[in-house]
């Protein structure tokens, strides 16, 4: 049974390119993206898309999620990504974050916001944040995600699915596109993003951007705790976070993460 459905000949660069595009799109859209969404996003015919995702699942580059509709990147991607997926935070930056943790007695998370993607670099070990996958899929509900969205010329490009589908995760989630527009304007003006019980009812969060000398968004530094504590945050604490974010801009500069 050594035959394959399609011989892996060098004659099919188009098929390979399509498969890689599907892989990229799953990475972009975040876990849970369905085959139909992939097909729509890539402009590929459904039949081709379904064949490709099933091929990628068979080779374990993709994983079909328990609802059987959604897909996520599989373990095999780690083998490809190698060290990049686990890139360590530069020692200096880690020290700066650790120092902030020792002083504010709140959960402190550092996340990369490069290339339009949210990825935790240094989550607080004592108070772990929501999983990356949840954050990446519901950018509108987290403070770090709002930083990322506010930095985009058009935030719709990053929101998976139709813009109307801002998922209402809690009663406090900003669910309407126009409300989110206003919220993102506020983030741009204050250079601070906040959320109060929008991702989980028992958590609030304040996030500040970390920008490189050219002003490009590199990362986000977030402190999180119960919503009322975050709402009543002392200005001194905010200044500490701001200074740390400022230091991080220098420390994270020119690292590939």
């Amino acid at each position: 049974m050594a035959t394959t459905d399609h011989p892996p000949a060098g004659r099919q660069p188009a098929a390979i390119r399509s498969a890689l595009t599907v892989l990229e799109q799953v990475a972009r859209a975040g876990p849970g993206v369905t085959a139909r969404e992939l097909s729509a996003a890539l402009g590929m015919s459904p039949a081709t898309t379904y064949r490709l995702v099933n091929l990628l699942v068979a080779e374990e580059y993709l994983v079909r999620l328990p609802d059987l509709r959604g897909f996520a990147l599989g373990r095999k991607v780690v083998e490809l990504a190698g060290a990049v997926a686990h890139s360590a935070v530069p020692a200096g930056a880690a020290d700066a974050v650790a120092e902030l943790r020792s002083r504010v007695r709140l959960a402190v998370h550092l996340a990369s916001l490069r290339h339009g993607r949210l990825r935790m670099l240094d989550p607080d070990p004592d108070h772990p944040p929501s999983p990356d996958a949840v954050l990446a899929r519901h950018l509108h509900a987290s403070a770090l995600g709002k930083l990322l969205l506010a930095d985009q010329p058009d935030w719709h490009a990053l929101a998976p699915g139709a813009p109307a589908e801002l998922r209402q995760l809690t009663p406090h989630t900003v669910g309407r596109p126009d409300a989110l527009d206003r919220e993102l304007d506020r983030v741009r003006g204050d250079r601070v993003a906040r959320q109060f019980g929008e991702l989980r009812t028992d958590r609030g969060c304040v996030a500040m951007p970390v920008r490189d000398p050219d002003g490009a968004l590199v990362a986000g530094l977030a402190v999180s705790g119960s919503p009322d504590r975050i709402a009543a945050l002392a200005p001194a604490v905010l200044r500490l976070v701001e200074r740390c974010a400022h230091d991080l801009a220098r420390l994270l500069h020119r690292t590939p993460a």
Binding site: L65, A72, G74, S130, A133
Partner: peptide
């Protein structure tokens, strides 16, 4: 036999798992 977090890229598991 559904996928479990062990099958998925670390950090890429959705909340349902």
């Amino acid at each position: 036999d559904a996928a479990t977090p062990d099958d998925i890229l670390p950090g890429a598991s959705p909340d349902g798992l």
